[in-house]
Design a binder for these strands. Structure first.
Ligand SMILES: [Mn+2]
Ligand SMILES: [Mn+2]
Ligand SMILES: [Zn+2]
Ligand SMILES: [Zn+2]
Lengths: 144, 144
DNA sequence: AATGCAAATGCGAATGATTTGCAAAAAGAA
DNA sequence: TTCTTTTTGCAAATCATTCGCATTTGCATT
């Protein structure tokens, strides 16, 4: 089990390839997404964006998140059933452990668990397209 | 890996124990929940309820789902980030495989994967309170 | 069975997150 | 620069869910 790492891909190229225009709002939103370690929701992205350009609208943030999600450039999460939260899709796949007390999100990756999921799906006659694994936990008292 | 089974618990007793009143809407909603195999959302529960008593309101469905969730009598899911869907909590714990083509929800249970989750959380210094594992897949062409 | 009171309900209005219609602005090809 | 198409900002709409409040109901007590 190892922690996930982040790398900075060339999103502008991806956008062009998808036949989509590179606009000022999109550039700003992509910068925010690539330069953060957390999992912000649309409102948080919006607030960070208007600090750079106060003419950006919340609608555009939502539209851009939908676009990037369809392109596969970002992932959408709904921890605790709250509003959608996003992160860039690049880097290795990982899952999340949410600290129920603090709200902290910890990323982890386990080949074992990924393989097990495949096995389970296959036993049921399915191929996995994607999956969602979220652990909700509390810091343990016991020694690690 | 085994499939989950359902049993019919005495909810009226649980309600009394929790100090809440047994009302007509609650009885009807509980009947719906205990007699279905699927994972209906509030609107679906509401429609099934008004067939039995057309004076039941959607608000009451929502309030009842919140009550039952707090009591631990039902579980709430948000497959695909859609509206909350519910199922009775009784029976063994299980996770879900969602057929991305048909929307079918298949239940499964794997001790291995549950154990692995515990291990992962423990390695990160956490105790799991609850978790969410959803596999999204498509029927495989390959022989099982 | 009738009474009293707190708890629950139905209704409609409010909320929060997200989407949409549309006219104006910007991107990019020519 | 001009032209065409996409994208944007804004406001209004939509969707799921919650809330306020007057009325009804459950149920413990006479
Ligand atoms: Mn992440
Ligand atoms: Mn289930
Ligand atoms: Zn995973
Ligand atoms: Zn599980």
């Amino acid at each position: 089990m190892k922690h996930a790492i982040n790398q900075k891909p060339d999103y502008e190229k991806e956008l062009r390839k998808a036949g989509v225009r590179i606009t000022r709002p999109r550039r700003i939103i992509l910068d925010i997404l690539t330069s953060t370690e957390d999992h912000p929701d649309a409102m948080k992205i919006f607030h960070r964006a208007i600090e750079i350009d106060d003419s950006i609208s919340l609608s555009t943030v939502y539209r851009t998140m939908n676009l990037l999600e369809e392109m596969g450039a970002i992932h959408r999460h709904a921890f605790n059933g709250g509003p959608s939260r996003f992160e860039q899709a690049h880097g290795e796949h990982h899952d999340h452990l949410i600290d129920v007390d603090t709200g902290d999100v910890i990323e982890f990756q386990s080949d074992k668990i990924e393989k097990l999921q495949e096995e389970i799906a296959r036993a049921l006659g399915y191929d996995i397209i994607h999956h969602r694994l979220e652990l909700y936990g509390r810091k343990s008292k016991r020694p690690e």
